[in-house]
Design a protein around this nucleic acid. Structure first.
Lengths: 187, 187
DNA sequence: ATTGTAGAGGAATGATCGTTCCACTACAAT
DNA sequence: ATTGTAGTGGAACGATCATTCCTCTACAAT
């Protein structure tokens, strides 16, 4: 998975995968079928092993803005641990590289965006005691998903961890501001 | 340029470039030197022919939030004209694909992010009669650059123009809210 | 009409691509 | 000890990759 994550799909050869995983060519083809099927399996594994634990706090029943802030903060902290430049989000990287060219893969990435939006919407809904289907909440959640992906993409090109922290903090700040604005207008 | 823009660097072969441009192989190599040099020339051409005119309103002496909103609105309108899914931003696509792997290209993309941030900062500074070097303005501008790139990346995977409009409108809405908050705190 | 030159496009370079096949090894089950 | 099985890694497939070289055409300048 890491090879695809760092280098992308096209720039990763089967020889790379054999050498970095230690798994023989034959085994890869008999277990997965081919390069694309292996990649799809990596997307699933990324979803389960990387996204699910990182996003669990937001998706929790009692998720709130603090959970979203923690998700971002942990993400940036993890990037710092692993060293810059970062790998970004495999889903976001894949959307950029293969989104317009492979419907099967696009479906997976779209589902990821939907999941992010849904998770953010629930957490934001808890903040204002509204259902996540509230129009303003849905819009704000969708924007959050796009902005967060923009942040992870940006992380692939910067060597300044502080700029990442600033942008994450600014995002949370803006969302908080919007929430108080919504609360005032509801009242 | 379009070939790189749509398909990315790795997925574009010299044969593709020869057939889509109508320029002979020999001419490409004698004029540019090779694939990577041609790609760098495309990045420059993208900057001058696509970014500069689209971003001119924001970079103008009297740029303001309305100019930023117009930049986004025009961008989405152009995407709608050309049909979804969109091509995204060549700079953003390149950051994701090649950012961590080619320093020379990364330099160009970073310069683009710097340009966006600077343009946004000036326009936002005009809104609150502050210098663009104001800390809050700089942070907000940097966040704007990242969010906008996230939006163009998202455009590569959606077939719903309305969702793009919503996200762009939400971004402007949040920035406006933040500006009024800054104004209140300055007063 | 002759010359100079810029570009098109075919041929061929070695390298690498994804993929298939298969001989061989390692090891668990009986 | 024998059998069954899962996985390794080498050989080779045709296809395609970026790149170089070169021939031929088209056209402007003289």
């Amino acid at each position: 998975m890491h090879q695809f994550w760092v280098h992308g799909y096209e720039a990763t050869s089967m020889a790379d995968l054999v050498s970095t995983t230690g798994v023989g060519r034959g085994a890869i083809y008999s277990d997965f079928g081919g390069k694309k099927e292996l990649f799809l399996a990596c997307l699933s594994h990324f979803r389960d092993a990387a996204v699910t634990p990182a996003f669990a706090g937001v998706e929790a029943e009692d998720g709130d803005l603090a959970a979203i802030a923690a998700y971002l903060k942990d993400g940036v902290a993890q990037i710092q641990e692993l060293g810059l430049p970062a790998r970004g989000c495999l889903m976001g990287n894949t959307l950029t590289e293969l989104g317009p060219h492979d419907d099967e893969i696009l479906k997976v990435v779209r589902a990821h965006y939907g999941r992010l939006t849904r998770g953010f919407a629930c957490a934001l809904g808890n903040e204002i005691d509204q259902t996540p289907s509230n129009g303003q909440i849905r819009d704000l959640a969708g924007f959050l998903a796009v902005s967060v992906q923009g942040l992870w993409a940006y992380a692939r090109g910067t060597d300044n961890i502080q700029s990442l922290n600033n942008k994450a903090a600014t995002l949370i700040d803006l969302v908080e501001l919007k929430l108080t604005s919504i609360r005032a207008q509801v009242r």
